[in-house]
Amino acid sequence: MNVDVKCGLPATHHIFSGCGYPSPTQNAFVFNPIFSIGPLHVTKPELLMAICVVVIVGFFWVAFAKPKLVPRGAQNIGELGVLFVQNQVLRPMIGKKGDRFLPFLVSLFFFIWLMNLLEIIPVAQFPVTSHTGFVWILVAFVWLTYMSVGIRAKGPIGFFKNMVPSGAPWWILWLLAPLVLFSDILIRPFTLGVRLFANMFAGHLLLLVFYLATWYFTSANFGAVYAVGSLAMSIVLTGFELLIQMLQAFIFTMLAAFYIGDSMETAH
């Protein structure tokens, strides 16, 4: 990026100032460390994630610490969330036999959702899940869960044999078996993680493009018209992102449930 003295300060960096549009890059996702603990450099995303943890545990503590038979306030909302995961994700994907995975799926859903949601929360304004480190950890938990569930349900050999569709002709098996194993063991976690990360990454870039454009167009002359249009677009996209954040958390949790349920099933 070519930074000269003329274009260095925000106040001078508008349209008609001779400087180009400062399009957002991958660098928008790189932060300077706030503080370091040994080799670990804590930056904004880590801090936001820690806040998410506190908020989730705090909220559900208020809601569920002393549950009442007749729910009030936070307990109502918490129950709504838990029952949503149970009835919309767990039961359709695994069925009643998967009820022991409810704590895992509820934790996943709310953790991801809140980390996504921070993208449009003022001051934070950054989706934690656009940093892959947090996503891969969650994917690792899902992968370990569905692999161990499968191996426990069918035995180490039976589990892998079960992945390959039965009844396939022998001459296709040499091609089919590696593909299916590759898909179930490696592609699944990879796509699960990338889907979440890329959606949040792209969403953040999209919002940046229009917010930066709003600021870029803001000037005393004709550019203000563009600025208004760009601002309107930013607001619309913020609403759109609100939907995407919820949807991605839902899809991640649902696929996790599907993989677990798939591992429990005997017939492929």
């Binding site: 880590e46 994630m49 934790s107 940093h131 892959t132 480190g133 947090f134 950890i137």
Partner: peptide
Amino acid sequence: IPSATELVMGLIGF
């Protein structure tokens, strides 16, 4: 490619 800090803190967080 994740950073080590994210992995460690993400693990603790979850």
